[in-house]
Amino acid sequence: MRKCQLLKPGLVEYGEAWGIQKQLFNARSQNEIIDTLIILQHPPAYTFGRRTINRQLLSNKTTMLHVNTKDNENPPSPPFIKGGKGGFSDANNLHGILFYDVDRGGGATYHGPGQIVVYPVLCLKTYTEDYHGYLRMLEEVMIRTLSEFMISGKRLKGLTGVWVDGEKIASIGVRIIRGFTMHGFSLNVNNDLRPFDYIVPCNIENVRITSMSKVMGKALNLSGIEDALIRHFATVFDMALETRLIAVA
């Protein structure tokens, strides 16, 4: 049985989590650690994938507010880890929400508390050789999880992610280098959906974003959904997931 360790660091600032991901990714690609699944939440953050077509943030849907991302194209390395929030210019801090240009596929998205974010750091070829097959597996994990909560998640052809009644409930964006993966997916559960109004999520104009609590009409217990995600991840990827003790220094 393929083994995978599970890290649940809780609520982690995006840049810091990105740094941890990179460390784990490097360690994984040098075979120093086994496959690792990180499951966490972020404080509010906008992230732009490399293929973000419209980098502009919309203000009130009418006034276009241009953001100069030039200075931001080569984030310091390790990204934003050390300086904390002090090093950001106003341009990186819109409506009080930090944003990051990141090295993953896909377009713009928003992360915030109440949304479950999963980063699998895997040696992909032990599961599939097919990059798009990997995306389908991630969707499968979320669709099975949603069904456990009586929500019918669907795939829309050509529009990677998971959809509920034509509204997007989960987003995917990954990076695969030499067969090792990082970044992953985010599933909206209880999070505030208004910040999505200021961007063009996943390069899809006029897309409607939804969340599990919006569909269910009530706030949900995050840990129950996390457990379901972990369980279905283990099934879909046919692996044994083991929680690692993390002593936070």
């Binding site: 490399r50 090295d103 993953r104 596929g105 995306l135 964006g173 990954v174 990076r175 280098i177």
Partner: peptide, 9 residues
Amino acid sequence: ISTDKVDTE
């Protein structure tokens, strides 16, 4: 390079 939601080198 990029294909759908996947970036790679």
